[in-house]
């Protein structure tokens, strides 16, 4: 087990380095000039050149890459060109928005997807199954920004139950903060709930037709127990294997949802950073997102080994 973990840690570092280097290389070929964006419309060429010198943008790419890597090794993500603040601090400021948003969306997805998928599988072909499938298909086929706008129109403008957008800091009024995250989390989680419904349903169907379930049934084990012992467990295995992927999808979706709901999260930050050509900031965010997803997939693998009966029984 220890050898396995060491090996995983090494591959984790290599993969993270590769992901970071892809980001660096991408940003090298992106057209656009951060100094000019900072100075604006009517900046003189001299002023632009002076600022570039000041920001170190006139150095050759390889020198910048080396510098950046050695900073990274010391966990220093550099300084944002536009905000003139440490990238690490900028990212930390945004986490209290994006992490709860993603977590809530994931919770919604699991809370809807797992029971609905199981329920549909046990009533395969029936009206309930059809409804569940219809929900799942509709959920996947609806663009999230579209859903978000309709949620705002219904729950904020018409009914006035929830805020239309914006974010109250947790320290100010936690209750309102939570309220302001509900609509975005629903808009973000809906399509994931739909996709989980499908995954759980098909994995449950597979288990229900498996030999050991038939044996259990034949031995007279009550249906409820069969579902709990075998089907639910296997459904959870199926869910756990896709969780890293789902979180990746949620983080990507957050980029759009945060802009629909005016949330000051990581997605809004990265969108701004890309359009401002704030290279250190984009790299920093990309590395953090990639590292997060890689850590999750590591956890998934370990979890998988723990949950999968085949591995445990062997």
């Amino acid at each position: 087990m220890q050898a396995y973990l060491v090996r995983r840690a090494i591959t984790f570092v290599i993969t993270a380095w590769l992901a970071a280097s892809i980001a660096f290389a991408t940003l090298l070929v992106i057209p656009g000039d951060p100094a000019r964006i900072i100075l604006g419309f009517d900046a003189s060429p001299e002023a632009v050149a002076a600022l570039e010198r000041q920001l170190g943008l006139d150095l050759p790419p390889l020198v910048r890459y080396g510098q950046w890597l050695s900073d990274l090794a010391r966990l220093d993500l550099g300084t944002s060109l536009v905000y003139q603040m440490p990238v690490g601090q900028l990212i930390r400021e945004r986490l209290p928005v994006t992490l709860p948003l993603t977590a809530m969306a994931l919770a919604i997805a699991v809370a809807i997807g797992v029971p609905l998928g199981l329920f549909a599988a046990t009533r395969r072909g029936g009206a309930a199954d059809l409804l569940a499938i219809a929900f799942a298909q509709a959920g996947i086929a609806t663009p999230s920004f579209w859903l978000g706008i309709f949620l705002i129109l219904i729950f904020a403008v018409r009914l006035r139950w929830l805020p239309a957008g914006g974010f109250t800091p947790w320290t100010q009024d936690p209750e309102r903060t939570l309220l302001s995250l509900i609509l975005p989390a629903v808009a973000l989680g809906a399509s994931r709930a739909a996709s989980l419904t499908r995954i759980v349903r098909s994995s449950a169907l597979e288990v229900l037709s498996a030999d050991f379930v038939r044996t259990a049934r034949a031995k007279g084990v009550p249906e409820g127990r069969v579902i709990r012992r075998h089907v639910l467990r296997n459904a959870l295995v199926a869910v756990s294997t896709v969780i890293a992927l789902e979180v990746g999808q949620l983080l990507a979706g957050a980029i759009i949802i945060e802009s629909v709901f005016a949330l000051p999260g990581l997605g809004a930050l990265v969108l701004n950073a890309v359009s401002n050509r704030d290279f250190p900031l984009v790299q920093g965010i990309v590395i953090c997102l990639a590292a997060g997803i890689l850590v999750l997939s590591l956890i998934t693998d370990v979890l998988y080994a723990y949950l999968d009966p085949r591995i445990r029984y062997s």
Partner: peptide, 19 residues
């Protein structure tokens, strides 16, 4: 001064009394 990018969200926030 609150920053709201999406014009539809701006209007919704005004109509909902948030701003």
């Amino acid at each position: 001064f609150r920053f709201i990018t999406d014009p539809n969200t701006q209007v919704a926030a005004l109509l909902a009394g948030d701003i």
